[in-house]
């Protein structure tokens, strides 16, 4: 009976997903093409950052959606633990690697931006360090959810971890900021201190929406896969 209940919601999800996925995938592709076109041909070189400002168009959206992605994981964790929503576990399993990929993208592109702008591949600046910790939190979630013979146990353990992580994340952010003031780093150029001109802002926003749609598309698709995988496991158990 419990198994039937677990499938009831996923079946509805799959009908929804089958209809939504082509649209979200198509929208992602169009937005990415438009966003990249604007990033390279519409946005002018920045007077300070020159052409390297073009890295920002992938770097900043990746940073935003990886952070939002972790909040999403925590929300799914609450949905699983509090409301016992069977789909939440599968969706968290689907979303965590996507969030990790976004965080990795943010870190690597930031490194390629930092080399010409700061003169170094990496600085232990507050934002970079927080993003690195966030990347580790994603890795921990992925590893924990897949570390058990019983997938349900991994789902619940990872859900608890995500909730603790989302409480701890602001504290980590605060501690890293505090640590940064303690060590008085070499003058670091701040983005966003000055108002961003609309010729930069609009491509950035288009890319941000494109990355959001990419996140949604990947999570929908991967959740479908996880549902299928769970059904295979249940069939294998039933056959025994």
């Amino acid at each position: 009976m419990a198994g039937m209940h677990a499938l009831a919601n996923p079946a509805r999800f799959q009908r929804f997903s089958a209809r939504a996925l082509p649209w979200s995938a198509g929208l992602t592709a169009i937005l990415l093409l438009v966003g990249l076109y604007m990033a390279f041909f519409v946005a002018p070189p920045d007077y300070q950052q020159k052409e390297t400002v073009r890295i920002m168009f992938v770097h900043v959206p990746a940073a935003w959606w990886s952070m939002a992605g972790y909040a999403f994981l925590a929300g799914l964790g609450a949905a699983l633990l509090v409301w016992k929503h069977p789909l939440a576990a599968l969706m968290a399993r689907a979303a965590a690697p996507v969030g990790a990929a976004f965080a990795a993208t943010c870190l690597i592109t930031g490194s390629f931006w930092g080399r010409p702008m700061w003169g170094t591949w990496w600085v232990w600046d507050a934002r970079l360090t927080s993003m690195l910790v966030l990347f580790f939190l994603f890795l921990g979630h992925i590893a924990l959810s897949r570390a058990f013979d019983s997938p349900e146990r991994g789902d619940k353990a990872a859900a608890i971890l995500a909730l603790v992580g989302v409480i701890n994340l602001p504290i980590i952010k605060f501690s890293v900021d505090w640590w940064n003031t303690l060590h008085q780093p070499a003058s670091v150029m701040k983005l966003g201190g000055t108002t961003i001109h609309s010729s930069i802002l609009i491509p950035l926003l288009v890319m941000a929406v494109a990355f959001f749609m990419l996140f949604v598309t990947l999570v929908l698709m991967r959740t479908e896969t996880e549902i299928g995988r769970r059904r295979l496991e249940m069939a294998a158990l039933a056959a025994e």
Partner: peptide
Amino acid sequence: GGYAAYVWPAY
């Protein structure tokens, strides 16, 4: 603008 070695690898 001379930053090809950073922009393209980042992408």
